[in-house]
Design a protein around this nucleic acid. Structure first.
Length: 155
DNA sequence: GCCAACGTTGGC
DNA sequence: GCCAACGTTGGC
């Protein structure tokens, strides 16, 4: 059984169009530096899992669909002193941070804004809509995912 | 730009 | 182990 996820990204740093433009429409989801998010990626994400791609901060909205195409492996940026994600405290033999590969599937015809999603009763329990929710990698139920699909018209 | 909600750090 | 201080996220 596949899992369903929502991944947040600030479009100014990495947008759905950046994912479309990436080689093989695939990117390494690096820079996650939150343990709860890390645990989801490392312990639960499986190849073939479904992903909602969410733009935060600028016009917060679900903007597209993606897929997990490679399961967790160590995040190389944690050992790169040039990277802003550099973590000198992460041991080479016991990596603290992980990435997965994410591949583009589709854009929504129209973004589904946070404000719109808040008005959908079936989504009332979504982590995304919880006050103070900041988790950038979060599980979504199959029902929530399918509700989003129904609300959106995928290109 | 403001600020609420979180997560992390570090002194004790 | 507690908790104040600090830094960050992210909606508005």
């Amino acid at each position: 059984m596949p899992n369903y996820w929502l991944l947040k990204s600030e479009p100014a740093s990495f947008s759905i169009d950046d994912l479309v433009a990436a080689p093989n429409k695939t990117t390494m989801w690096d820079g996650v530096r939150n343990y709860q998010a890390r645990n989801f990626m490392r312990d639960q994400m499986k190849k073939g899992d479904f992903v909602l791609f969410y733009h935060s901060v600028t016009n917060p909205s679900v903007v597209g669909l993606a897929e997990i195409t490679r399961e967790a492996y160590p995040d190389p940026t944690q050992w790169d002193p040039e990277s802003k994600y550099f973590d000198p405290a992460s041991p080479a033999d016991n990596p603290r941070w992980y990435v997965v590969d994410v591949t583009f599937k589709a854009k929504l015809k129209e973004p589904l804004s946070l404000a719109m999603l808040r008005e959908v009763p079936a989504l009332a329990g979504m982590e995304l809509l919880r006050k103070g929710s900041r988790l950038s990698v979060q599980p979504v139920t199959k029902e929530e995912y399918e509700t989003i699909l129904q609300l959106s018209q995928v290109e």
